[in-house]
């Protein structure tokens, strides 16, 4: 039992996720087929990439509440250019830059103007939303767009959908960055003990800017892939991902490295949320039951690891507990 305990503390949520998978598999064998897993993986891409970006910001103990709106804006910018006949390269570059610029702006406002990220990014969310409506005038860009663009998200390589590859690439990059580079070590130190890190010579301001900028870039990539996958761009198209992204990162903080935002945790959590949604559709649960179950799962999972989350750096910051 004593040997089991640290194992459960680290992998408990992941095991609960596994239990859900087993239950669905018993009820609906199609759930466990490779084809269905490929679908879940593909659908995890949007949520996963958005959440991974959020993870990088949260590692530095800064929140980014603008991810969904920035993703939507990036989709709109990309869609507008594709719709106007620009090449895929130009459109994608513009979409990614949109995310990058929004993220960098968040970072500058937080570190230079010393506006708490909670407020700065809320402002950015409103601005990005407004810009999205300005560009589209409320009407979505829809069309049968060239395959050179939609191919980014549609189709597959080695039997795995392109979206899944995007997710894998992003996750690998985030993992290497966060766990295996000096920048990653400094990002974490900035989040866990900002003042101590600064005194140890870590450029904490730059790290916060880097975290928020990469978060924006993640939102930008999500937006571009959304537009390519749906061949359309609307100013609110990523909106429903926001709460799920936050849920994924918080759930992720209950596994692997309890209390710390971490890449494998975020990834497993995003996949679990999507698998849960997928399973509920397959077993034929009514739409309102799905909402209720998802809500219960999120609350329950976070509640059972409240101990670890309560000690998380960003929570302490929100409580305005500062080292004296």
């Amino acid at each position: 039992m004593t040997a089991l305990r640290p194992f459960l503390a680290t992998y408990g949520t992941a095991l609960a996720g596994l239990a859900v998978v087993v239950v669905f598999a018993l009820l609906k064998p199609v759930f466990l087929t490779p084809a269905n897993f490929a679908i879940i993986l593909k659908e995890t891409a949007f949520l996963g990439i958005l959440s991974l970006g959020f993870t990088l910001a949260l590692v530095t103990a800064e929140l980014d509440l603008s991810i969904a709106e920035v993703a939507s804006l990036s989709a709109v910018v990309t869609g507008a250019l594709v719709h106007a006949g620009f090449g895929a390269t130009v459109a994608v570059a513009a979409g990614l830059s949109t995310g990058l610029v929004c993220g960098a702006a968040n970072g500058l406002v937080v570190t230079r103007l010393r506006v708490p990220s909670l407020i700065a990014t809320l402002g950015m969310a409103a601005i990005a939303k407004g810009l999205g409506f300005m560009i589209t005038q409320g009407v979505a860009f829809v069309g049968r767009w060239p395959v050179s663009f939609t191919g980014l998200a549609r189709g597959s390589i080695f039997g795995l959908s392109n979206l899944a590859w995007w997710l894998a690439g992003t996750a690998a990059a985030c993992w290497v960055l966060l766990d295996w580079t000096r920048i990653g070590a400094h990002l974490r130190a900035t989040g866990e003990a900002e003042e101590a890190a600064r005194l140890a010579g870590v450029a904490t301001g730059r790290m916060k800017r880097a975290g928020l900028t990469m978060c924006g870039l993640g939102a930008g990539l999500t937006g571009v892939l959304l537009a390519a996958s749906l061949s359309s761009a609307a100013p609110n198209m990523a909106g429903d991902h926001f709460l799920y992204a936050i849920a994924a990162v918080l759930l992720g903080m209950t596994m692997f490295e309890p209390g710390r935002p971490n890449v494998p945790g975020t990834l497993v959590a995003a996949f679990s949320l999507k698998a849960l949604g997928n399973g509920l559709v397959l077993v034929g649960a009514a739409y309102y039951v799905q909402d209720i179950v998802l809500g219960l799962v999120i609350v329950a999972s976070v509640a059972l690891s409240a101990g670890a989350l309560g000690r998380a750096a960003f929570v302490e910051k929100l409580n305005f507990k500062r080292p004296s």
């Binding site: 974490r188 130190a189 866990e192 003990a193 101590a196 209390g259 710390r260």
Partner: peptide, 8 residues
Amino acid sequence: DLAVAPRL
């Protein structure tokens, strides 16, 4: 107080 980062 700030000699170390406690959680690292």
